[in-house]
Simulated assay, not measured.
Amino acid sequence: MVSTPSAAFAERGTAVAHLPEGRVEYRLEGDGPRTVVVFHGGHARASLPLGEEVFTEAGFTVLAPSRPGYGRTPLSTGTTAAGFADVTAELCRTLGVERVAAVVGVSAGGRTALAMAARHPELVERVVLESAVAFLPWPHWLVRLGGRVAFHARLEAGTWAIMRSLLRVAPSLALRLLVRDLSVLPAGRFLGNLSTAERATLTGLFTLMRSGSGFVADMLPVPDCAAQVGQPALVIASRQDRSVPFAHAESLAAAMPHAELVESRADSHMIWFGADYPRVAARIGAFLTTDL
């Protein structure tokens, strides 16, 4: 049985690789004989493991790099999705990873995962996309406008400091504010459907989030490479996701020649929360362990 996120959400230790293209922060976790590369979503970084239990419990090692502008990876390392895909391929070679069982793209990390699969088919065997941003316009122009201000590199530390303070003094209010863009459901209803452990995990995650200079860069348009991804792909998304509409998943599944669309019944962008996740996790596990 694959476990769902636990209440004890904590930051993990990372290392830094100094490559010709620049500095890359990464976390290498697990001792499995095969490796999956996980590209985190917006406001996250390599030290924040979300939904990775499905990989480690199936016996895979997880390599999670901080994308450009997040954590200790400067925006100048790779810069674009395609550029950082090449940097990550070099990181794999540096670490002795000759084949990648799958690249996993979470939310805004989806475009980098797709770029790595398209540009390095000799390295990447499969693709898993979780609530991933496609190549449609994203985010909504109002969110993009507000995000460029609130999460500007010079202001984002203050934005998150305010949220952390609010989480301490008025956690229910803070959670309502933070989840309103994650679900099409009213915030109170979404939070009411979470277990106590899930609420604690979500609170812990929000407490540790930072945007660096990465999130503003995530909102820039990226050349569409989905049709160039020939590997088997699993595209997972929920229709209740307000952050990344379900149309993104549909467009990716339609563009990739060997893609399967798996509809999560989660209440939000966070597919790892809710009673439906064990079914989704089982499908991921089967997908990764089926012979090509």
Rank of each mutant, 00 (worst) to 15 (best):
R12D: 08
A282N: 08
W272M: 09
W141C: 00
T88E: 11
R283G: 03
R34W: 02
P74R: 01
G13H: 08
G274I: 06
G22I: 00
L136C: 02
R27H: 11
G192Y: 08
R67G: 01
P232W: 06
V24D: 03
A113E: 04
T207R: 07
D86E: 14
S131T: 04
R265K: 10
S3C: 06
T80Q: 06
V244E: 05
L28V: 03
D291Q: 13
T80A: 08
F135E: 04
R99V: 01
V280A: 03
G51T: 05
T207W: 09
E130M: 14
D267E: 14
E125W: 06
E52G: 03
S3N: 10
G204A: 07
L202S: 11
G147A: 05
A275R: 14
D31A: 13
L234E: 04
T35D: 10
M270S: 06
A255F: 02
A89H: 12
P65S: 11
R12P: 00
A233Y: 04
A64G: 00
S264N: 04
Q228A: 15
R27F: 03
S238F: 01
V106C: 13
E130L: 15
P121Y: 14
V24E: 03
L167P: 02
E130T: 09
V54N: 08
F246I: 10
E156T: 04
S251R: 15
L19F: 11
C92Q: 09
R180V: 06
D218M: 01
L75V: 13
P33N: 13
R45G: 12
L177Q: 09
L220Q: 15
L182S: 08
S76E: 15
S107I: 00
L91M: 10
A282T: 10
T207M: 13
V184M: 03
R176P: 03
G204K: 07
G188K: 13
L288R: 02
R23E: 06
G105N: 09
A197L: 06
P49T: 07
